[in-house]
């Protein structure tokens, strides 16, 4: 994490709960991290760990009922988002913070042409440029690498492939030049050769306009090749943060270590894969103490891990971890 004040977005002690009939789902608990200007932060974790809910909390798109942000602070470019009015949030969404989703199939409206949908975004957010909206749309489609944009702007989503639709989504989200792009599993639904194209495109666009990217993904390969900083989440909490290089070369938390070891890698001839035993815990019924202790090779034997939750602490500059047994972790700050 960058230490200076040059953070575009700071999340502090964010807690988001869902009040369901089965009980309170503590989807996000006490989550804090920063995104530096012009950098890419990857939020990694398995399904249900709260990575998407954190992003939705930033956008304040948590549906109530049942979901609610019950605590914490979100500071975007000096502004406290949780105190902003609904009207102000509508201005921020799309203009300053844009989002792209995993499923390019379902996030476009099937009954409008893609041009219509990009134009709608331009007209909504840049009222003074309404008469040039179609030109902006065509221009954006060209920028994201869609060949023959004058013709394709009149096509419907079903006439396009998955990769093309994701390009349209990117064009739509970038037409108002946001300073933060939240990409929720942007390439998970795409083939590897198309994934490579989309990730290259995002990198190029970032280089051109200096936006920050929050990339939510479970693919550690994508993280290693694209992120500057990494946040690892497990069962609603941040368990480790640091630069991508540090986290991958020297993972401190047993969960991160296990995750990296269990991955089959190209060119690595291993007889058996290492595994993290057990299952991802149910968010309705998280284990006590450290939430990873049930699957942890050290934690399962330690009473402290079973009863006390380790807070996230800085162990070396720019490096945070939440584990009683991590190297350099002390109980007093």
């Amino acid at each position: 994490m960058t230490q200076n004040g040059d953070n575009l977005l700071s999340i502090r002690n964010l807690t988001t709960h869902f009040f369901t009939e089965q009980g309170v789902v503590k989807a996000v608990q006490d989550v804090s991290y920063d995104i530096a200007r012009g950098k890419t932060l990857a939020v990694v974790g398995e399904s249900g760990c709260g990575k998407s809910v954190t992003a939705m909390s930033v956008m304040q798109l948590i549906p109530w009922p049942p979901g609610k942000i019950v605590g914490g602070e979100i500071i975007f470019d000096g502004e406290a988002l949780l105190e902003a009015t609904d009207e102000r949030m509508r201005e921020i969404r799309g203009n300053d913070i844009a989002m792209i989703f995993q499923e390019p199939m379902t996030s476009l409206n099937p009954v409008f042409t893609v041009g219509n949908q990009i134009v709608e975004a331009v007209k909504l957010h840049q009222k003074d440029k309404a008469d040039q909206a179609w030109d902006i749309a065509i221009d954006m489609m060209k920028k994201v690498g869609i060949a023959d944009p004058e013709r394709r702007v009149r096509e419907y989503p079903h006439q396009m492939s998955g990769g093309m639709r994701q390009r349209v989504m990117i064009a739509m989200s970038l037409c108002c030049s946001p300073s933060l792009l939240i990409a929720d599993e942007p390439t998970t639904a795409l083939d590897v050769t198309i994934q490579a194209q989309i990730l290259d495109l995002l990198r190029d666009l970032q280089r051109q306009n200096g936006m920050s990217i929050m990339m939510i993904t479970h693919d550690l390969g994508v993280v290693a090749e694209n992120a500057d900083d990494v946040v690892v989440m497990y069962a609603s909490r941040v368990v480790e943060t640091g630069t991508a290089k540090n986290v991958f070369n020297n993972p401190l938390h047993p969960y991160t270590q296990g995750l990296l070891q269990s991955l089959p890698r190209l060119g690595e001839k291993k007889e058996r894969l290492d595994v993290i035993g057990g299952n991802v815990p149910n968010p309705l019924n998280f284990p006590s103490g450290c939430k990873f202790h049930t699957r942890c090779p050290i934690g399962c034997k330690d009473t402290k891990c079973r009863t006390q939750e380790p807070p996230l602490k800085e162990v070396t500059p720019g490096r945070q971890v939440a584990c009683w047994h991590a190297e350099g972790y002390t109980e007093t700050k």
């Binding site: 590897v192 050769t193 198309i194 994934q195 490579a196 194209q197 090749e225 991958f248």
Partner: peptide, 20 residues
């Protein structure tokens, strides 16, 4: 094209244009 979980790895990538 497969992203590998090794940061800053110098890898020659062949990015294919177009689609299937």
């Amino acid at each position: 094209a497969i992203p590998e979980p090794i940061p800053n790895k110098d890898k020659k990538r062949i990015v294919l244009g177009g689609e299937v």
